[in-house]
Write a protein that binds this DNA or RNA. Sequence first.
DNA 1: TATAACTGATACTATATTGGTATCAATTAA
DNA 2: TTAATTGATACCAATATAGTATCAGTTATA
Lengths: 158, 158
Amino acid sequence: MVSIKQAAMKVLTKNTDYAIRALLALASKTGSYVSAKSIATEHDIPYQFLRRLLQEMIRHNLIVSKEGVQGGFMMQKDPDEITVTELIEIFQGKVQVSECMFRKQICGNRARCVLRHEIMRIEQVVQSEFEKVTIGKLLRDLEAANPVKLSSTPITHN
Amino acid sequence: MVSIKQAAMKVLTKNTDYAIRALLALASKTGSYVSAKSIATEHDIPYQFLRRLLQEMIRHNLIVSKEGVQGGFMMQKDPDEITVTELIEIFQGKVQVSECMFRKQICGNRARCVLRHEIMRIEQVVQSEFEKVTIGKLLRDLEAANPVKLSSTPITHN
DNA sequence: TATAACTGATACTATATTGGTATCAATTAA
DNA sequence: TTAATTGATACCAATATAGTATCAGTTATA
């Protein structure tokens, strides 16, 4: 009797998780270039992995970069305009409920279509909730919880 | 410039999708045994795949089976008591936002913890929305949309 | 002007998940 | 007796996820 249950349905992958953390790091230092290396070290993100995420965010005009010594990355888009929904879409693709949904073709199963209706409604709820969460908001929450600075010292919680 | 974007963040995997369809098939014929073969054929679900899903649902006491000729599967649990949330949990694991969430250990990154707070709130919203959708509700929606019967004839939509 | 600190680009790898198939034993109605 | 059926499980292929490695180009500065 082997269960087919999986570990967990993940909402945020490492991609998105790391990207959010990197953006928070940049948003807390607007106006200056921050290197990938320092972000990786301070936030415990695998260096080369992080670099790919940063490149992707440049392509989406969330941040800009400067090459060479003293180079690095800097916020471009207003943190209050960067939603978690946007980041999920960049790194995990558009939220989609079942494969059927975006295929405008014959569907041999009407049961799925009833499901689809319910599920598109829920999808809207999920998206609108994630829309409310911006990098700017997270940064303010973060600073409120820890008034001094964006520290690199590990803390215990839970 | 190769994008790292994935195709889509899927909310329902095939497992859950097929399971819902199979349950609708059984719920529309309460009191009689329906074979895996007929469900597979009528609802275009891969036979062996479906059988695994049915076994799993037996383990969770959603349905019962009878072996041998004229055997098959039958609803056990009240369709109005079977929520999509329950099926997601059975086939995709508990909805979870980031790995950090259920690990009660030192977390070196407080940014993620601020995120966590927001995201647990959203998780609650998502779960409660999916709780509202039961097999019973879907079946009634299905019958309302198609008053005659749960047909096996493919229809075109969208 | 040489060099070290950087980004740009991209190829590669390992593991897990997802979706699906195959096989064989046991049961049971006809 | 046998064909239709479930129970149990092993196996496979494709894709996604997470992470590493490498090399070329840029630039501040010693």
